[in-house]
Simulated assay, not measured.
Amino acid sequence: MTYVTVVEDSPAGTVENLDKLMSDILPEPDGLAARYAGTVGGKLAIVAIWESRDHAETFMSTQLGPGLRRLLGAAPASPPHTLGIEVEHYYVR
């Protein structure tokens, strides 16, 4: 089942850092269908569409933390608040 994650304040901080993290530091995540990012109120927000909840949770628990440490030089003080949504209905034009 499709799973969506929403991060309101990514520790990556900027779209440029996110691009570096996702293209230079981490391998392409298994099960990632799409990613959207932008700045809201000066904070980096990210919406990701996953093939399943398991794909999202595996990426976040095994790859994201080490990748952010490599990008930032240290682990973030706390993990970002992430909203996860099991998609029950969708509309695509």
Rank of each mutant, 00 (worst) to 15 (best):
M1R: 14
M1N: 14
T2I: 15
V4G: 11
V6L: 14
V6N: 02
V6K: 02
V7W: 01
E8T: 14
E8W: 11
D9E: 15
S10C: 08
S10N: 14
S10V: 01
P11F: 08
A12D: 07
A12M: 02
G13Y: 00
T14A: 04
V15M: 06
E16A: 07
E16V: 05
L18M: 06
D19R: 11
K20C: 04
K20W: 03
K20N: 04
K20F: 08
L21W: 00
M22R: 02
M22I: 10
S23D: 09
D24S: 12
D24L: 09
L26C: 07
P27V: 06
P27S: 09
E28Y: 04
E28Q: 14
P29R: 01
P29K: 00
P29S: 08
G31H: 05
G31K: 03
L32Q: 01
L32C: 08
A33V: 15
R35G: 00
Y36N: 10
Y36M: 11
A37C: 10
G38K: 04
G38P: 06
T39M: 15
V40C: 11
G41I: 04
G41A: 05
G42A: 05
G42H: 05
K43W: 01
K43V: 02
K43P: 04
L44T: 02
L44H: 03
A45Y: 05
I46S: 05
I46N: 02
V47D: 05
I49L: 09
I49K: 06
I49W: 01
W50F: 06
E51S: 05
E51F: 09
S52Q: 00
R53P: 02
R53Y: 12
R53Q: 13
R53K: 15
D54W: 00
H55T: 13
A56C: 10
A56N: 00
T58L: 10
T58S: 14
F59H: 04
F59Y: 08
F59I: 10
M60Y: 09
M60R: 13
S61N: 14
T62R: 06
T62Q: 04
T62K: 11
Q63R: 09
Q63F: 07
Q63E: 12
L64I: 03
G65E: 02
G67E: 03
G67W: 02
G67Q: 07
G67H: 01
L68V: 08
R69D: 13
R69E: 15
R70S: 12
R70F: 06
R70H: 11
L71F: 06
L71T: 03
L72V: 09
L72E: 05
G73F: 05
G73W: 01
A74E: 15
A74V: 05
A77E: 15
A77S: 14
A77N: 13
S78V: 09
S78L: 11
P79C: 09
P80S: 11
P80R: 10
H81G: 11
T82V: 14
L83H: 13
L83C: 08
G84K: 06
G84D: 02
I85V: 15
I85G: 09
I85C: 06
E86K: 08
E86R: 12
E88G: 13
H89E: 10
H89D: 10
H89C: 07
Y90N: 11
Y90E: 12
Y90A: 13
Y90T: 03
Y90M: 12
Y91G: 11
V92R: 11
V92M: 09
R93Y: 07
R93S: 13
R93H: 14
